[in-house]
Write a protein that binds this DNA or RNA. Structure first.
Lengths: 136, 136
DNA sequence: AGTGTTATTGACGTTTACGTAAAAGCAATG
DNA sequence: CATTGCTTTTACGTAAACGTCAATAACACT
């Protein structure tokens, strides 16, 4: 049917260890089926892993990522919880926009230093080859 | 002369504990002077703390933040290390741009769910007040 | 002099996110 | 059929980033 993956398939593809995948299972982030004793990962597990790793890059804890998954799963459910859901989303959003701002600031700063670096390296280079403009 | 701060001044301002500030000192992120035994934080320390907290929000470890500070301090120094510096900066930049992409993806997803939420909440609301359009 | 506030240095505790080693089970393969 | 390779569970270890006492010291009042 739909393609499945072994534990090392996914580990390799995403550059993590099998230990990590088992850990994520303990934490409820993925729920692979079993072939006897061996884990079999579905497409859904693969997607979840991808999302989890993105979440990690964004600084979320595994617990928070699980929460997000739960919220995500809940997204088609009863209205009574939707309000609470909405509030949580708003908090996430604010946090992420702060983070985006942080990233922009950092990138600008890095770009600045990078150009400074290039300039200095260029200067050092041009002073090695005796060129007429400045060597005079 | 220039304004100084006590440990709790900065802790309060940045919403961290004094323990955190002492820890950051252990890790070499700030180097407050002393009035006898008491710490006195300079404007420079304050800036460093601010940068450190931003770094944390971006997912850097304290060790990495210290590295960045060292690189930053080195920025006006000898060319022989500039090349190495430049390489490190480039790695950071790539990492940050990946992160920025992650943030964008996440924000879009959140915005999508938020509007879905609002829509459902609105629907629920309008079905409470018997309005002619749909109650018919 | 006594009381309260804020500071100091240890030093052990805690949480998170895995690492790592041990012991054991299938499965193909030379 | 023994070895090699991948898997499993169990369980202790660890690095980072602080938390949380504890004991002590310096001031500010009142």
């Amino acid at each position: 049917m739909s393609k499945t993956y072994t534990i090392s398939d996914l580990a390799q593809e995403f550059g993590v260890t099998t230990r990590t995948l088992r850990h994520y299972e303990d934490q409820g982030l993925v729920t692979p089926a079993r072939d006897g004793i061996n884990r079999i990962y579905s497409h859904r597990d693969r997607v979840r892993l991808k999302l989890a790793l993105r979440g990690k890059r964004l600084g979320f804890s595994l617990g928070e990522i699980r929460e997000l998954f739960e919220l995500h799963d809940l997204a088609g459910s009863e209205q009574r919880q939707l309000e609470e859901f909405s509030v949580k989303l708003e908090r996430r959003r604010a946090q992420l926009e702060q983070q985006r701002e942080d990233v922009e600031v950092m990138l600008n700063e890095i770009r600045f230093f990078a150009t400074q670096c290039q300039r200095r390296l260029a200067e050092a280079e041009s002073s090695k080859t005796p060129n007429p403009e400045r060597a005079a």
